[in-house]
Every structure is written in C-alpha cells, then in structure tokens.
Write a protein that binds this DNA or RNA. Structure first.
Lengths: 212, 212, 212, 212
DNA sequence: GATGAATGAGTATTCATTCAT
DNA sequence: CATGAATGAATACTCATTCAT
C-alpha cells in the first residue's frame, strides 16, 4: 500500500542503470555505436525503450556515461593516489595489471577506439596527455587530462630515475615513448583478438624484461 | 564534337570512380562509415546521388571497393613479388616504407580500424594471417589472406635466418611477434595523431636498431 | 496521531485538486496544452504523476475541469442570477468588471483561445451563443450555452431598451454587435499583451462613453 | 534519357513546396500545430514523409516558412510602398481590403494566433510594432518590425491629420488605438467564425462610418 | 551518362497512462 | 493516499536506394 522508500527507488535505479550500461557496452563493442539501436539494447536488457530514456537523456548520453564510468573504474584500479614513486616491482605489477584490465574490459576498449576515431573527440582526449607527461613543469590538472596524465607522469619519472644508473647513451624520453608505443601495440593486438593467446604472455614478459 | 572513343569513356569512368572513392574515404575517415551519408559523398564529389549508384552497387560495395583498392595499392608498394629473401638493408627499407605508407594513407587506416572493429569482418581478415606466417607448411593462399600472409612469411623467414648467427637464447618467433607488436604500436600511435611528430622519427630509428 | 476526519480528507483533496489545476493552467497558458507534459505539471505542483491521476481521469479531463471551473467562477463574478434588468450604472460596472476579470484570469483566457481554436470544440461553444442572444424566443438553455447566452441576453435587452429613447436611425442589434466586437477587440488586445498598459484604461473609458 | 533541366527541377520544387505549405496550413489551422502530424500532412498532400523533409528542415521550419510567406503576401497586398499618405477613400479601401484578407486567409490567421500565443514569439513580433507607430521619430526599420510598423505609421499619420479639422476634444492617439482595437475585435470575431455572416458586413460599414 | 525528386523502412525520442508497492 | 518505475504507442526525422526523365 505504502510507496517504496527513497532508498528502495535509488537501489532499483542503480541496478537498472548498471544493467543497461553493461548491455549497451556489449552491443556497442560488437556492432559499433551507430549500428547499435536503442531497440536492440532495450530488448537485450529486457526492458522497454521508454525506460531507457528514464535513465539516460539519449544515446549520446548513454555513451558518455559508459565511457566515464569505465575511465573512473580503471583509474581506481591503479590507485593512482599513491606517492607517485614507482619501484621496479611496482612497475612490473603495473604492467601486469594493465594486461589484466585489457582482458577484463576488452569491450570497453573496443568502444573507446571508436570514440577516439571521431576527430573532434580524440583531440580533447589524448593530445594533451602525452605532452603533459613529457614536461617537467607543474601538472596542469584540467579535468579531462588529469586521469591519464597522472599515470603518464609516474612513468615519465620512472624512466627519468633509471637515467641515473645507466650508460651514457640512455635517453629517458625516448625510452618512455618506446615503452608507451610498445604497450599500445600490445593493447591493440590484444583488443583486436578474440581468444586469449599464449603468445601474448610471452610478449608481456619480454616487454617487462626490456623496460623494467 | 566527334563522339568519344570507347577508351576515352573508360578513362572517364575510371577517373570518376577514383574521385568518388577518394572523397568517400575522406568522409569515412573523418566521420565514420555509418555517420557518412551518400548525400554528403556525392555533394563533395560534385556529382549526383544517382551517378554514384552507376559506379557502385551500394554503400557497402563502395566501402569494400575502397578497402580492396588500398590493400592492393599497399601490396604493390612493397613489390612483394620478389624472391622472398629480405636482406638487412631491405628490412630497413621496408620499415621506412611502412612508416611512409602510414603517413600517406592515414585516412585509409582509420577506415580500416573501423572495419576491423566489427566482429564478423575482423576474423575473416586478420586471424588466419599471423597463424599462416608462423607455419612452415605450404601457404594457404585464400584470397584475403594471401596478401598479408605473404609479407608475414617474409618477415618470419628474416627472423628465422637471424637465429643462426645469434646467441643461444634467441627466440625467432618471439622476436617476430615483438616486432609486429611494436610496429602495430607505432602504427596506431601514428594513425591516432593528427600532426606529424618529431618523436615518431626517433622511435622509428630505435625500432630499426632493435630488430634489424 | 489521530486519524483525520472525513471532512479533513475532503478538504485536503479539494486543496490538492485546486493546486494542480492552478499549476496546470499556468503551464497550459505559457507553453500550450499539447506542449505541456503531465510530468512538468506534477513536478511544479510538487506531487507525483500517479497522484494526479487520482484526481483527474487524464490530461483531457484536467483541461475540461479547468475550463469549467473558471467559467463558473466568471459566471459567479457577474452574479447573473439577478432580475435580468441592467441599469446604465450596472452596465458601466459590468464593463469594468470584465476588464478586471481579463486582468486577473489572463492565463485562463489564453487557454480558452487555444481551446476555441480547435474546430470541433469551438462550434459547440460559441456559435449558439450569439444567435440565442439575438433571438427573442425563450432561451434554449443547453448546458454549455446557458452561461454565456444568459449574459448576452441581458446585454441584448439593454440595447433594446435604449432604442426607445434614441433617434430614429438607432439599430439596437447593430449596436449590440458593435459593442461585443469592441469588447472582443479590447479583450484580445489585453490577453496578448503581457504588461499592463496605460492606453487600455483610456480605451475602456472610451468604450463606456460610446455604449453606455 | 537526358535529365530534366534545372528550370524543370526548380518548377517541380516550387509547386511541391507550395502544395505542402498549403496543406500544412490547413491542417495547422484545423487541428493546431502540435496536434498536426507530419504523417497527416504528407498523407493529405499525397506524398511520402521523406519528401517533405526534402523541402523543409523540419516541422518548425515548415511553420516559419508558412508564416513568412503569408506575411509577405499580405504586405504585398497592401502595396505599402506608396507615398505614405492615406486619403479618406484610401482609408475605406484599406479597411475593406483587410476584411477581404481576413476572409481569404482565415486559416493563416488561425495559425498566427497560435504562434502569438507562445510567449517568446509574441514579444518579438507585436510589441515593438504599436510603440513604433505612436512615435514621431524616424522609423527604426528593424527587419521584423518593418512590415507591420510601416502600416501602423500610415494609420497614425491619418488620425493625426484628422486632428486639424476636428473639434477640440479630439485625441488622435486614442482614436488610433480605438480603431486598432475595433479592427482586432472584427478580425477575431471573423476568424473564430466559420460561416460568413451578414452581420459582419454591417459592422464593417459601421466601423468605416466611425473612423473614416 | 547524369540528375535529383521520390520512396519507405528504420531510428531516436517523447509522453500519457498504468500499477506494484 | 502517494510514489515513480515501467510501458508502448505515437511522432519527428534520416537515409540508402530507385527511377522517370
């Protein structure tokens, strides 16, 4: 007789929203953002089209909520709020964690690549990131950049520190860039492959050997 | 006022077709395949919608013709019909050529990534390739695979040959995979960046140093 | 903690209903009937959508209840249940009262115009009215007509009576029609203007001078 | 075999566009803007929904094109580009022309009232008009105002001139406002009535008698 | 070859209304 | 009484494709 409590409503909303985002992510990853219809998402989620619009303003809003949610999740994964110092063991841990995230959030990365392929979006997102990481100046912590540039800075410092105890020809900036490039190669190979592959494990070990 | 010869007609047809494909590629790369309309393509090409359908069966046909055309172009770039033997100098030449192609055909690669993101397409395309390249058996020359697997085979042989004169721990298959992975990293970094970057040149030299 | 008496419940119901109708009228007047959503009404009234359906069968029902309520209010304003005789002073009082009602119920009139713009509704509403007023026969007191036609009849009689003491060319029916027409002009000018305007007062006085 | 000439295409476009606007106006006038569907318009015009969007950007664009078209038509009707001087005969001609336009464009006026009922739109449209007309200063011929304010100025001048030869109590501004008000009353009465009515002719004559 | 008007199936989105709690 | 999640029919709008000229 009596209506649900606000907490009950909040819980229902939270669960439904999660469900929709999960289902939508899968569809987006499989078929692409544009090729995925609101219809198929709601069908697959077992809800009506209208309900989806109770939770999201539209298809674009759904997309950006998904992207933001996962970015924050990944951010939390790395617990970036540490002292900023990366030991060699932590470095290895980091790399293996990255591989794990690639595996567990493969759908998200596929979606992310689609997003980054659109010219306008890409620039806001990535451009400033690498630039910030290579600079020594105080971090310019704009909202968007903050998450990734923070990680980049930690790696930049890591390779800078290795500079001290290496041979003269060692170029820390080149080393950083090559490391990032190699990780991107690993990531994209992984994302574009469906099944798990024994070779990836070997490559990962090799990358750690090379840059640790 | 004399009527054009059949050859002239053929040439006109060829040029128009090329123009349309060129324009379509740019639009696809900029806005994505689904977000690009036949209307905008024909407008930008300065022709009518109807005429486009004189040259292509439909939007999908336009896409696959573009993809095939560029794949063949890239294939020709490498002049793969050689003896299959790759010297160290040829290896370096190859890598630099690849970088050049990335630069000149950036639009194509952006489109290609979109294509490969669609699950069904991806599998037909890439999966068999790397497997073939790692096998010694006679080449399985299916249409699609042939082009890329042929190149892969040449690289596979290259690293196999280096095995003979290196230290005991050398693993040619791992070396091949790491090389491919690194090149992919280089490629994706390049594709997703708009402006040319000094760092890419340094990275390229480093890659050559590492794997030549 | 004692349960409310039935009377209290009834009072609460009445107040809630009034609140909803008041809010709905404002929204209808501002944005138009179709452009106003049940959602915005209930939000603005501080209640749930469901509750609104406890008081009204639907959006249409809400509309017609509003229209009827205000018509009766206006009817009461004029206290039409008099003897039907209109003195000159009462005539002036009437006109000024009309102006007052226009001012105080501006939202209602804006809604009313929307209603009358729909073909089907308009006919039921206004057509018979003026005809009735011009006829001498016994009033055809259909529900809808009754309210307005009663007023019209009073005015008709008023101008008929003036006929007796005026010059030969005096046409009471024309005078009635011109008076109604002028009042309509005044009304519409007023309704379509947001701010109060000094000129309206002057015009009103002029109208009274002309037809009193 | 050969395609239509640009002129032929232009002709087809023009006719179709007119047809759609005509039909849309009727529907808008009958059922109201919001209650009219693109579907019903296209059905009634005997075309597909898609075609409508070849000619108009959307429902709103369709509306504003209709409104503008008729405003310009009405403007032309009055041939306002005269010397600005209105003789008594021209005054009468003007009034009768207005009545004619009301009759012939009744659908348009019904639509116009709907438009003016929306708060934002109304202000841009009418507010500046009457103000401009009452001022003596040089006309501020902003785009929107120009059409109507020009007409208003002519009437304003007309009543100003009558001031010279009338008795002392004559107030030209009041006379102008009363005239406008009366014409509005005539217009609205006319617009809200379906059939033609003998009484309107009588009223019109009376108005001319009063203000000529 | 070439044009662009015309189609219609498909898509995102809205909103009155219902109903379990 | 009261709530707001849930529904689904309806609606504006898009776009690949066809076809008469």
């Amino acid at each position: 007789m009596s209506p649900r409590s606000p907490e009950q409503y909040e819980e229902i909303r939270g669960e439904k929203k999660s469900l929709i985002m999960q289902v939508a992510l899968e569809e987006f990853a499989e078929k692409g953002f544009h090729a995925t219809t609101i219809n198929s998402i709601s069908k697959r989620a077992g809800i009506s089209k209208g309900l989806l619009y109770n939770y999201f303003k539209g298809k674009d809003d759904l997309l950006s909520e998904i992207v933001l949610k996962y970015i924050y999740e990944i951010y939390d994964y790395f617990d970036v709020n540490r002292d900023g110092h990366l030991s060699e063991d932590e470095f290895e841990f980091f790399i293996r964690k990255m591989a794990l995230i690639l595996k567990e959030k493969r759908d998200f990365w596929r979606l992310m690549i689609q997003v980054l392929l659109q010219n306008e979006v890409r620039e806001q997102f990535f451009s400033s990131v690498t630039r910030n990481a290579n600079e020594d100046g105080p971090q310019d912590s704009h909202k968007n950049d903050f998450l990734i540039s923070r990680i980049m800075k930690i790696f930049s410092d890591y390779f800078e520190r290795k500079n001290d105890r290496r041979e003269p020809g060692y170029d820390p900036e080149l080393e950083l860039n090559m490391f990032i490039l190699t990780m991107k190669g690993f990531a994209f190979s992984y994302i574009f492959t469906d099944r798990d592959d024994l070779r990836f494990e070997k490559c990962l070990n090799n990358i750690i050997d090379l840059y640790k």
